[in-house]
């Protein structure tokens, strides 16, 4: 039995490692300095000059905007789920359940929903539309992660603050937020990682363009879609560039994820002992 378990553990971990190695080898081989510093030029999609700067910048803008917006919304929701606010009331349980449901909604559905709303508002595919759709994708992820982080803050610590005459909000602001900061940061970076890699939601809502966006209402390119579109062309040179785009995406996600963990462990210096 134990051998079987070790075998499956090895298979799972091994399979995932092979994935990283394959993408790295293929992608790094196709990568060049021009890829990350130039916009696509005229014959780019036939294999000529140019780079992916449009997609890199676009992805960062989309994911950054969505993370910011989702953070602004997720923080109050996570606070509401704590016992000092909504707590164990029926309404809080309803919110918690909705978050669980939203967490499982496929991103293509968020894309379709965003598209519907944009049609209704008369908006075109744009940076703003993409940010809104991506916000929906990462909001439940972030809120749930933050809820868990807040839950780790002990009631006794909050009581210590209340006992000094602080209100709930003052306690939240000065004690709980500070205690939870490393965890919150991890939650934010987790969401950023998810946002930058999501393709299905931006497919309808953000569009794709070879230019950098000049305003929130311009369409914008993204790395996942760059992978998808370039892989779909019949030219091997362009397909190579899809590998490079995937590699850039992978590196960004891994950087954010690993960096977030390291940063969080470093920041916990001021946290009171649990």
């Amino acid at each position: 039995m134990r051998a079987l378990m070790m075998l499956s553990a090895a298979a799972v971990v091994g399979g995932l490692l092979i994935l990283i190695v394959v993408i790295t080898v293929q992608g790094a081989g196709a990568l060049s300095w021009a890829m990350v510093t130039q916009l696509p030029s005229g014959g780019y999609y036939l294999g000529k000059e140019g780079g992916l700067l449009n997609a890199i910048v676009g992805s960062l803008l989309l994911a950054g905007g969505a993370t910011l917006l989702a953070g602004v919304l997720a923080l109050p929701v996570a606070l509401y789920l704590q016992r000092d606010y909504g707590g164990d009331t029926r309404r809080a349980n309803l919110v918690r359940m909705s978050l669980d449901l939203l967490w499982g909604v496929p991103s293509i559905v968020y894309g379709a929903f965003g598209f519907t709303i944009m049609l209704y508002l008369g908006m075109r595919a744009s940076l703003l539309g993409g940010i809104l759709a991506l916000t929906l994708v990462v909001l439940p992820i972030m809120a749930r992660a933050m809820d868990e982080v807040f839950r780790l803050v002990s009631v006794s610590l909050k009581e210590a603050s209340w006992a000094l005459g602080a209100t709930r909000w003052e306690t939240m602001r000065s004690v709980v937020l500070r205690q939870a900061l490393p965890g919150l940061l991890t939650a934010v970076l987790l969401a950023f990682g998810r946002a930058i890699g999501d393709a299905a939601s931006v497919l309808f809502t953000a569009g794709y363009t070879d230019n950098l966006p000049q305003s929130l209402l311009d369409p914008v390119a993204s790395l996942p879609l760059a992978v998808f579109f370039q892989l779909g062309t019949p030219f091997p040179e362009v397909q190579q560039r899809a590998y490079a785009a995937a590699f850039i995406l992978l590196v960004l996600v891994l950087l954010v994820s690993v960096g977030g963990r390291l940063l969080a462990s470093r920041m916990s210096r001021f946290s009171a002992d649990r």
């Binding site: 971990v13 994935l19 890699g197 998808f228 995406l249 996600v253 891994l254």
Partner: peptide
């Protein structure tokens, strides 16, 4: 495992195409 859970689906898709 947690890091791997965050890998974008296009990357998995590309791995599928390649391997």
């Amino acid at each position: 495992i947690d890091v791997l859970a965050g890998i974008p689906s296009v990357v998995y898709g590309l791995f599928g195409v390649l391997v």
